Amino acid sequence: MIEVTANLARGSTFLAGEILECYITLINTDREEKRNLAYNDCTLAWASAQIHCQCAVSDSRVVLPKSDILSTEDVTSTGDQTSFVPSKGERGLTVWSSKPKILFCDLRLGPGEQKTYLYKEGIPKDVPPSFKGQSVKYSYKLTIGTQKLECPARLLRVPFRVLVLYGLNDLNVYASGEEVTPSNPFLEQRPPENTLLEVALQVLSTVTAKRSPHCFNITNARGKVARLCMFKQAFKIGEDIVGTFDFSDASIPCVQFSATLQSEEQISEECRKKPGQLPITMSYCKHQDFCLHSRKTHFSLPIPLSASPGFISDIVTLKWKIHFEFITSQNAIPPHAAPSNPAECSTWRGPENLEVETMVWDLPIKVFPTNPLHASNVSLLKTSSMVEM
């Protein structure tokens, strides 16, 4: 019996543009004492590996445009049991696939013998990211196919996650032009060679850095409700969105507020099932607080590492926002009268009935990818898979 194991060399999350590496090990699990028996030698006819991206859509909301991409059912029906069809049995369409690479042909393994191969493949920068939405789903898998003599082909799949950071097509743009460190005239000066991951982390640090705070005056038809200050409006997944509220100069008393982190999944016009179809909103976390008689307060919203950053594809667009709700009083609320003697204490009792109104406001934000090594630490995807033949 042959045991085939595939193990990703560096976690289960990659940036588009990186090179995926996978170690594929084949072991003959028969006992060592039968090594001299010829029938215990297992021969594998071939083995190939390929990366493919599957797109599955909701038929009630999405109409895919006509294209030359074959569906999985069409591809499966044209192949027999001995051909290598990586998307066999998968749901949806194959929107991208790498060229299949042959790992070996005619491999013979004796009892207890093993062989390891290294598979390398680059992920293009313009592919859609991994995404699991209500209407559209993009998923990536590495498929290894192998076949024993006079047996049907077997497939081994290893799912992984792809994050896309736009603007990495030309790495020379991010290369430093002048040397700022002291140079030695007796040593040969070599330009620094930054990998794509190092450049991507530099770009992420630049676009998500804290700059001047952004302040917003929140008002309604009757006056000012609050003043919101945020340190930035661009974040990486895994970060905390922090903002502060100032009610000291408000003319309208705010009784309660809530802040909800939401994403909007909007289908492109040519792919919508119905005209005027509204986007799907998904909420992730919520901060709610009572703020009556408060001068200043804050909110904090963590962005899950499992969430998908904002992106645009031919079918769907994902955007992020913070949904605010303010409950304000329509009547003036008398403040708490403090006693003249500091040693005395007093109790303030609020009104039994309070006429309120609700005001909503959406603040768009930008959400970018993070370090794929950090995302791999919390990923539920397995980095290895095994099949027996």
Rank of each mutant, 00 (worst) to 15 (best):
Ile2Tyr: 01
Ile2Gln: 02
Ile19Pro: 02
Ala45Asp: 12
Ile51Tyr: 05
His52Arg: 08
Cys55Tyr: 06
Ala56Gln: 12
Asp59Glu: 13
Val62Ser: 01
Ser67Asp: 04
Ile69Tyr: 11
Thr72Val: 09
Asp74Tyr: 08
Gln81Cys: 09
Arg91Lys: 15
Lys99Ala: 13
Lys101Trp: 02
Lys101Pro: 03
Cys105Leu: 12
Gly112Pro: 03
Leu118Lys: 11
Pro124Asn: 07
Lys132Cys: 08
Lys132Thr: 13
Gln134Glu: 10
Val136Gly: 00
Val136Met: 02
Ser139Gly: 06
Leu156Tyr: 05
Leu163Cys: 11
Tyr166Asp: 11
Leu171Arg: 09
Val180Lys: 13
Pro182Gln: 06
Asn194Trp: 08
Ser205Tyr: 07
Asn217Arg: 11
Ile218Met: 05
Lys224Met: 06
Gln233Ala: 10
Lys236Met: 15
Val242Leu: 11
Gly243Met: 04
Thr244Ala: 14
Asp246His: 03
Asp249Gln: 15
Pro253Asn: 11
Ser258Lys: 08
Ile267Arg: 01
Glu269Met: 08
Glu269Ile: 10
Pro275Ile: 01
Tyr284His: 06
Cys285Val: 15
His293Gly: 03
Ser300Phe: 04
Leu305Asn: 10
Gly310Glu: 08
Ile312Val: 14
Ile315Phe: 01
Ile315Glu: 02
Val316Arg: 00
Lys319Ile: 03
Lys319Pro: 01
Ile327Lys: 15
Asn331Glu: 14
Pro335Ala: 08
Pro342Tyr: 02
Glu344Arg: 13
Thr347Gly: 04
Asn353Ile: 15
Leu354Pro: 06
Glu355His: 12
Met359Arg: 08
Pro364Ala: 06
Pro372Phe: 12
Leu373Asp: 14
His374Met: 15
Val378Ile: 14
Thr383Trp: 10
